[in-house]
Design a protein around this nucleic acid. Sequence first.
DNA 1: TCATTCACAGACTTATCGTATCTATAATAT
DNA 2: ATATTATAGATACGATAAGTCTGTGAATGA
Lengths: 138, 138
Amino acid sequence: MKYSQATDYALHAMLYLVAETPDKPVSVQLLAEKLGVSQTYLSKMLTKLVKAGLIHSVSGANGGYKLKRNQDDISFLDVIQAIEGTTSLFECSFHHDSACLIQQVVADAEQQMMQTLKSKKIADLVAHIPKQPHERLT
Amino acid sequence: MKYSQATDYALHAMLYLVAETPDKPVSVQLLAEKLGVSQTYLSKMLTKLVKAGLIHSVSGANGGYKLKRNQDDISFLDVIQAIEGTTSLFECSFHHDSACLIQQVVADAEQQMMQTLKSKKIADLVAHIPKQPHERLT
DNA sequence: TCATTCACAGACTTATCGTATCTATAATAT
DNA sequence: ATATTATAGATACGATAAGTCTGTGAATGA
Ligand code: SF4
Ligand code: SF4
């Protein structure tokens, strides 16, 4: 059970967007180059981020992506949920008259994690971005 | 991103084991019947629980499974990790000289969840077990 | 001792989902 | 108009989850 690699890409892309100039859009071509991933694939994730209202897209020449909200407003949770969705980690596959307590327990725990992820903002790591392009491990 | 259905089965099986008599082993046949799942498939998960040291298996006639440790000692986290494994939720697929902060943030959050799951014991829900066999939703 | 009952292991099939590519279309700047 | 860029859809591939089948070996009890 793991977050998808797409989430990894999205988080890194957001990191670059936060670090870049606040106004001028950044093309997917540049981002893909920095991350060492194909443009078409990365654009899928960026589109999800757009639909989640985190970033804004500009079509046409000199277009690209830029932040939509205030950068201090964008949390890890926002990005992760934009990619992974918001369905809860555990859903009981049974049913009967009373409510499901196992599900309740796991949901509580997941809430703890979400709380933390919500408090951490992407902008918190902005100083951390490496100068060189990323190198893939796998 | 979801826990596997196997985790669902395992949690419910543990619930039954905790509720049953403390000493006499329960056969996989009975458990499978209660949960409405095939014996061979359920036994895979029970074997994982055995290897994780949570339950004990007794071969031969009148055999089955019974708890190994003190029942108050078995947490949700124990069961979940026995099935899902212990690899962390997020692993950065890149590398460079400095340490990975994104990974750190997510790991911290995951730790929060694990903390909660560790504090919740299976035995806490023992009064909750339904009399009737489970009915599958999907 | 012998047959029965059980857990256990491995091979195997199938379905589902993540990963990735390709292509076509629509929007915009020059 | 043309080049540039995002967006959508179709498609292919691989990995993992879900589930079945079969055989093996251990304990029981008759
Ligand atoms: S978790 Fe509890 S409520 Fe949900 S199906 Fe199992 S026993 Fe019923
Ligand atoms: S250290 Fe930070 S920037 Fe570098 S790969 Fe890990 S998450 Fe990405």
